[in-house]
Amino acid sequence: MTIADLKLNQKGRIISINGKGLLRHRLMEMGFTPQTIVTLRKVAPFGDPLELTIRNYEISIRKDEAKMIEIMEIKE
């Protein structure tokens, strides 16, 4: 599953980041690295982009990018 599959307020642990080049690099630099926990906070009114909490801050990425990030669901 990827970040795009998360439900509201559901958490996931990042397994890997697909894609390549600058975009992948940038996503990692913003904190999306393996083992990091992501929470889906909100979906924008038009269904895209997403608001996530990662490394104690809120970030917004589009679904296209969210689909690049593989996660494992964390059961509460």
């Binding site: 975009l23 940038r26 996503l27 913003m30 982009p49 608001e51 801050y57 809120e58 970030i59 917004s60 990425i61 589009r62 296209d64 990018e65």
Partner: peptide, 9 residues
């Protein structure tokens, strides 16, 4: 460019 934006408090 891909939209990667911080949502500051």
């Amino acid at each position: 460019i891909p939209f990667i934006m911080e949502l500051p408090a």
